[in-house]
């Protein structure tokens, strides 16, 4: 359909006459928007904008419900380590750094495994098993976190305690944060930030792996062949072409994994024994994180402590939002990110 402006009609007329210069000029065709389309677009736009609404409502209501506790505690909410429901002492100065420590442990374990797996899947794996491997990594992301928790609590923990004990006995003298101060009994080594971090690492391996694999597989074919033509081995090609190409994407993927690790709840809450001091020794019993604090304390009926949990949730929400936005910026600015953007 042609737009019904007078100009368009005037241009359209001389076509029959022929030989007129004006007729050869390209005309701008604008389709009229039917009422049906207007409604349709309105509905879709509303659906698209609903994500703003949802995110806005989340921030608004967490703030609204959390204000009561923030008023009561003031700035000490961020400096107080203790969380005492009865005496209304609330503070996240211990749970926040503890959560970061758990997430860091998870990253230290997950990143090497995830990156080497991504290199294997995208560069080394035979064609036949490649898609199966990709599916398996996706499946790993779909395994419910409560199953990870069960596995960590009943399978991993009894088996890893011996390793933890050996590490602290032989390395604890030289590396202070590997020391266990509570004596050599079995319970000293369980429920530690290290074990929780190990379980959380399994949950972020699939995220980091699949994002990095995607980035690696987009390394330009021409540059790969150039490296081979210069006599490079496959590892030489990966090191000089694929890894530099994917650097930005990998950094972004690691940050996304960090955000996910910070927000992980159930596996952490299932395995840790909660405590409210900042962790300095990662192999020692006891840790906490904001999300597990919420999961373990939400049942308390006291309105002020619920409000304090809302405030803690708001901090977690803001933190993961910032980390994810930063990750998006890093990915968007990198060369591989520019190749995938529209």
């Amino acid at each position: 359909m042609i737009s019904r402006t007078p100009g368009a009609v005037r241009h359209a007329e001389p076509v029959g006459g022929g030989g007129d210069q004006a007729a050869d000029r390209p005309r701008r065709i604008t389709a009229p928007v039917t009422p049906g389309d207007l409604v349709f677009r309105g509905v879709l736009r509303a659906a698209g904008l609903s994500v703003f609404l949802i995110m806005g409502l989340i921030a608004f209501f967490l703030l609204l419900r959390g204000l009561q506790a923030l008023h009561a505690t003031g700035w000490s909410f961020f400096t107080q380590e203790k969380w005492l429901t009865q005496s209304h002492v609330f503070g996240i100065a211990a749970v926040l750094p503890d959560g970061v420590i758990i997430a860091m442990v998870a990253l230290v374990i997950a990143v090497p495994v995830a990156l080497t797996t991504a290199v294997y899947v995208s560069e080394y794996a035979p064609e036949r098993i490649r898609s199966a491997l990709v599916s398996l990594v996706d499946l790993m992301a779909a395994i419910p976190s409560i199953v990870y928790g069960l596995w960590g609590l009943f399978f991993l923990q009894p088996r890893i305690v011996g390793f933890v004990r050996w590490t602290t006995m032989h390395l604890g003298h030289w590396i202070p944060f590997l020391k266990v101060r509570s004596g050599d009994i079995g319970a000293s080594y369980t429920s530690s930030p290290f074990i929780v971090g190990t379980v959380v690492s399994l949950m972020i391996i699939p995220i980091v792996t699949s994002l990095s694999r995607e980035v690696f597989s987009q390394a330009p074919q021409g540059e790969r062949e150039g490296a081979y033509a210069l006599g490079s081995t496959r590892w030489g090609m990966v090191r000089s072409v694929v890894l530099p190409f994917g650097r930005g994407g990998v950094v972004g993927a690691v940050m996304l994994g960090f955000g996910r690790a910070m927000g992980e709840t159930i596996a952490v809450a299932l395995i840790i024994s909660p405590k409210f001091t900042v962790t300095t020794h990662i192999l020692e019993n006891g840790a906490n994180s904001i999300s597990s604090l919420i999961a373990l304390h939400f049942g308390e009926s006291d309105p002020l402590s619920l409000s304090a949990l809302m405030a803690a949730g708001l901090v977690l929400f803001g933190l993961t939002l910032v980390v994810n936005m930063l990750a998006a910026v890093v990915i968007g600015r990198s060369r591989s990110g520019a190749a995938t953007a529209d």
């Binding site: 994500v51 703003f52 995110m55 967490l62 976190s145 910070m262 927000g263 709840t265 939400f298 809302m310």
Partner: peptide, 25 residues
């Protein structure tokens, strides 16, 4: 573009926050 960015941020929303949100509202 902003919708896409927000959707990506939502994918990484900690699941406990989603629960807390519905609990609060």
């Amino acid at each position: 573009r902003p919708v896409r960015t927000v959707v990506e941020a939502m994918t990484a929303l900690p699941s406990i926050v989603a629960g807390l949100f519905i609990l609060g509202v």
